[in-house]
């Protein structure tokens, strides 16, 4: 299954992004690195594809962005969670836990 695209549930990347931004504001590169590190490289986000997702989330008011200075003194765009994004994260987390519990129960039972 090496580097195989998989049909993860709709909105999984969005949940990962929201969760990553819950701790602190970050630029796109930082978000990808944090997700890879947290997943111990088992789950990878295609770097470029992250941006349309970020822009759509900003459009929907889940995150907001502002330009700042990166760790290497370069101009970079930082994203942070909005209140609406925080609510969405809580709802999506609860939803994910509910579904994963249900699927685990089914897999154990059969």
């Amino acid at each position: 299954m090496a580097n195989e695209r998989t049909d993860l549930m709709q909105g999984t990347l969005e949940l990962l992004i929201l969760n990553t931004l819950a701790r602190e504001s970050m630029h796109g590169y930082g978000i990808v690195q944090r997700i890879h590190a947290a997943a111990e490289d088992l789950l990878k986000v295609e770097d470029g594809s992250l941006y349309p997702a970020l822009y759509r989330m900003e459009e929907r008011g889940l995150i907001k962005s502002e330009w700042g200075v990166s760790e290497n003194n370069r101009r970079a765009k930082f994203y942070k969670l909005t209140k609406s994004g925080q609510k969405k994260l809580e709802a999506e987390r609860a939803n994910w836990n509910r579904i994963s519990k249900a699927v685990t129960k089914i897999l154990r039972a059969t």
Binding site: M1, R56, K101
Partner: peptide
């Protein structure tokens, strides 16, 4: 195209057999 799930790639687990679990 709002299929954000298609941007995720699952890779092979490391040799020690540890896997993402729920």
């Amino acid at each position: 195209l709002h299929r954000t799930n298609s941007l995720l790639v699952v890779t092979d687990p490391p040799d020690d057999g540890s896997q993402l679990t729920n």
